[in-house]
Design a binder for these strands. Structure first.
Lengths: 231, 231
DNA sequence: AATTGTGAAATTGTTCACAGCA
DNA sequence: TGCTGTGAACAATTTCACAATT
């Protein structure tokens, strides 16, 4: 079980980059889960934590937790577990959460507005610096303290403000054109909320959140309940 | 390439349920992609479509498209491809999109409001019938045409209105308590937007959308760019 | 005694390659 | 001929199981 005993730990250098270890997409997703779990355990005062306890934060196995972490280094102590604070900081570094990122958001509609107010973003270092829209009634006004620019000036403003990461909350019909502008400005990371497939060059990372697709998954489960389909 | 030639097709019964075929989570996700692709092709007037063309809608291989579809039946015609309209309807049935679902949404804040206005939901048969909040200023008022109830009455109202599916857009701190109420009302499907891990019984399907986690993935990619990590 | 770190085994998921059919 | 449907081969991921360590 969890231990409240404070414990000194030494750590080795991260080695995933050196050993050619393979880090899968799902490993990254689980790293985010561990990070959230560790934040909770830290708040509750735990000093060390076992892979078993960490696994409970997400229906995983202890072996998987250990395997995931082992891609990046040896952070634990045999017989004792992982030091909560240190492991949390280590994962923060791996995920790039030990710094701030300049974010721009395109499309100040319903979804866009909700994201501007989303408190998790600034907490994790994602600071929305610029907003863009194509609606003249919104352009050149402030929205919750952030200036709204004309989407026509997207590429130049992104460069000017050294934006690292763009969130797309535009209609599906506009998504590809806006993406092309974002890419032309040299931005390498895009989070897309438009319910459509968009194309980016290989060196640009694109992640898409499609809320309809999530509901479709649920309705699939409802329809297929009771059959021996494996999830 | 794509063919515009109309073609008569006969179809076999779906057999995934009979053969014990294994349908993975990713297969369901891809089914959603195919559905969207087929909608586009149908709009453009195509009558038949090959697995190759369908694969382009999402960086997949033709073999994967065929394998995915084969879990549910033989929908295509050798030498010709798949009939667009029929395949779309078939997938709609598999995903449970050939009917409507009664949805309730808990938490009429920023995210909740955005979801109420999300046009994809009603398009696919997900009708938000009830809203819940714990803010007296919102309770018993209309929000975009839908009545807001006190979250205290959650369980009884869910039963009364035969709600199939609940969307959670509440703060992380309230998520588990609300979930327990939802589960007690017999609802078997939950879409969670609260950035926290929640527990549900095995017979309840839970999907979580965590927007911070998506950004974390992007910042990971930015930080680890250029290293031979495989995604 | 407890728990990590990690090769090896098991499992799951993807791609290949080709027989079968229109 | 062209393209599906699918078993077999291959690849990736997860779990096992145990030596190593505190």
């Amino acid at each position: 079980m969890r231990s409240m005993v404070r414990q000194a730990h030494h750590k080795k250098e991260s080695h995933a980059r050196l050993t050619g270890g393979r880090v899968s997409e799902s490993t990254v997703r689980r790293l985010s889960l561990y990070y959230r779990g560790l934040s909770t355990f830290e708040r509750e005062g735990y000093k060390t934590i076992s892979s078993k306890d960490l696994a409970k934060e997400g229906r995983l196995t202890p072996a998987q937790v250990r395997k995931d972490l082992s891609f990046f280094g040896s952070f634990g102590t045999r017989g004792l577990g992982y030091p909560v604070k240190e492991l949390k900081e280590k994962i923060a570094r791996i995920l790039g959460l030990n710094r701030t990122w300049n974010v721009a958001l395109v499309g100040v509609g319903n979804v866009g507005s909700a994201l501007v107010s989303y408190k998790e973003f600034p907490k994790q270092g994602f600071n929305i610096k610029l907003l863009f829209d194509n609606d003249q009634r919104k352009i050149n006004k402030n929205h919750k303290g952030i200036q709204v620019f004309d989407v026509k000036d997207l590429a130049s403003k992104l460069k000017e403000h050294k934006i690292d990461l763009v969130i797309l909350a535009v209609p599906a019909s506009a998504a590809q054109a806006v993406t092309d502008d974002v890419v032309s400005a040299g931005v390498k990371s895009i989070l897309n909320f438009a319910p459509t497939h968009i194309k980016v060059p290989d060196d640009v990372t694109l992640r898409s959140v499609n809320m309809a697709m999530e509901l479709e998954h649920l309705s699939f489960s409802l329809v297929n309940k009771g059959y021996p389909l494996k999830f």
